[in-house]
Design a protein around this nucleic acid. Structure first.
Length: 305
DNA sequence: AATCCGGGGGA
DNA sequence: TCCCCAGGATT
């Protein structure tokens, strides 16, 4: 080592993991912890690309515990993209019950249609092609590429962004987080690495009450729970939402839930949605129709065929 | 950059 | 109650 070379461990530039040796140590520590303690989730391991895509669509803004049982029944019913593409969109929306964000069901159905008609029924490997699928953004495209196809890319979700900000001890923009994540991807089993980072964020390096005393990579962490949380001012953090009680989202949700059970005649929509303002219900019903979430059948609203 | 989109669980 | 959740699309 040349005289005067800075010790990257104390590099004030904010790149504490730029040193290859430190990077390798971080990878070794985290992967060892992951292989020792990982939850056995149905889409991990040798899951096929379609299963990975389905799981990632379901996991968008939705906790693992809620996805697991629905994922199982969904995959049993539609084991391939062509199988899902052949189903009526309304049945997919019905099967989405319990997950929320029902538009994801429509988008997944549309993605299955594209995969079937344009990609021979096989989930694409190319990042750009993946990201062009409905409902597939920067995160999901990389998740599928890494987890299903073994590509050396780094999916950055809310967990990974938080972990990286804390490891580096500084707030990270969206682009900066992706850059740091890319720089850390190991050549061997990049999928496991991505899973390990998310697992750490989900179980140890949590948003609210991080368990730094149990963290396998605490020795490599610039933050360690001391002082202001660098993740708090980073991109990817959850945004405050409008109040749900009384919102359009709530009424929409009730409307779609009612349609899962049966078509609802127009005059009964208000009662079915538990919303006395009939004009409001009509507006929301029309919006559902406009985006393909429902259809008018004579005088009744129903899920699309 | 802000909003919209669901709904449930944890602190 | 408030906050968070393996985000993406639209405006």
């Amino acid at each position: 080592m040349a005289a005067g070379t800075v010790d990257r461990a104390d590099d004030p530039s904010g790149e504490p993991l730029a040193d290859p040796a430190r990077r390798a140590r971080l990878q070794a520590l985290l992967l060892a912890w992951y292989h020792r303690t990982a939850r056995d989730l149905p889409w991990r391991g040798d899951a096929d690309p379609w299963a990975v895509l389905v799981s990632e669509a379901m996991l968008q803004q939705t906790q693992v515990a809620r996805v697991v049982p629905i994922f199982a029944s969904f995959m049993a019913r539609w084991p391939t993209a062509p199988a899902l593409a052949a189903a009526p969109a309304g049945e997919v929306v019905a099967a989405w019950q319990g997950l929320g964000y029902n538009r994801r069901a429509l988008r997944l159905h549309r993605a299955a249609t594209v995969i079937t008609s344009e990609h021979g029924g096989t989930v694409p490997e190319d990042l750009g092609v993946l990201q062009r699928l409905p409902g597939v953004g920067a995160y999901t495209a990389r998740a599928v590429a890494a987890f299903a196809h073994g590509l050396a890319v780094a999916p950055v979700d809310t967990n990974v962004a938080r972990v990286l900000a804390r490891l580096h001890g500084r707030a990270l923009s969206r682009a900066a987080a992706q850059e740091r994540a890319d720089a850390l991807v190991p050549d061997r089993d990049p999928g496991a690495w991505g899973q390990a980072l998310m697992e750490l964020g989900a179980r140890v390096c949590t948003a609210r009450t991080p368990r730094c005393d149990e963290c396998p990579v605490a020795p490599m962490c610039a933050w360690r729970g001391q002082g202001p949380d660098p993740a708090a001012s980073s991109a990817h953090r959850s945004r405050p939402q409008a109040r749900f009680e009384g919102s359009d989202r709530q009424v929409r949700g009730r409307l779609v839930q009612a349609l899962r059970e049966r078509p609802v005649p127009g005059p009964e929509l208000s009662a079915a949605a538990g919303e006395p303002d009939a004009e409001r219900v009509r507006r929301l019903a029309d919006a559902l129709v406009a985006e393909g979430m429902a259809e008018w059948d004579a005088d009744a609203l129903r899920l699309p065929r």
